[in-house]
């Protein structure tokens, strides 16, 4: 089941539709399925020293989030409990239910120059920030001419 972090974002939905149509007609899709979208939403950037990953995952208990790095494959997994009242509670009425709930997992392949021992993660204001340091040997440097 696919559910975006922003189900009301029309442009994102059109983007998803286009992507799904392209993937449906692709004879050899990626082994890990959908490459974009889902929960949490990811933004990735880089500096010459590190790779910065921002996962927009609001409402999680940081202790329950699993961040694993195995042979260059980074996995972010966890569960977001539903905050809706249970079905037995007949006194409460749910008018809008758009927020994601349930288990989630996102997997991404890091670049080869990332140092597996230099990965740190922090959680602030509902954003999981993962910093992966690049190897010293892979960093750009100026070569002196003798």
């Amino acid at each position: 089941m696919y559910r975006s972090l922003f189900p009301r974002d029309v442009l994102a939905e059109l983007d998803r539709l286009q992507r799904e149509m392209r993937e449906a007609s692709d004879l050899s899709p990626s082994i890990r399925g959908v490459g974009r979208g889902g929960f949490p939403a990811l933004n990735i950037g880089g500096t010459p020293q590190s790779v910065e990953i921002f996962a927009f995952a609001p409402g999680l208990d940081p202790a329950t989030v699993e961040v694993n790095l195995d042979r260059g494959v980074l996995t972010i997994a966890g569960e977001r409990p539903s905050s809706l009242p249970s079905d037995r509670d007949d006194k409460a009425a749910v008018h809008i239910s758009e927020r994601f709930s349930g288990r989630f997992r996102r997997v991404l392949t890091l670049a080869d120059d990332v140092d597996p021992n230099g990965v740190a993660a922090s959680y602030r204001d509902g954003v999981l920030h993962i910093t992966a340091k690049r190897r010293e040997s892979a960093q750009p440097r100026r070569i002196a001419i003798q």
Binding site: Y2, G33, V107
Partner: peptide
């Protein structure tokens, strides 16, 4: 809900 994203410059 598995998916993968390559961290690529482009």
């Amino acid at each position: 809900m598995n998916d993968s994203t390559a961290v690529a410059r482009n």
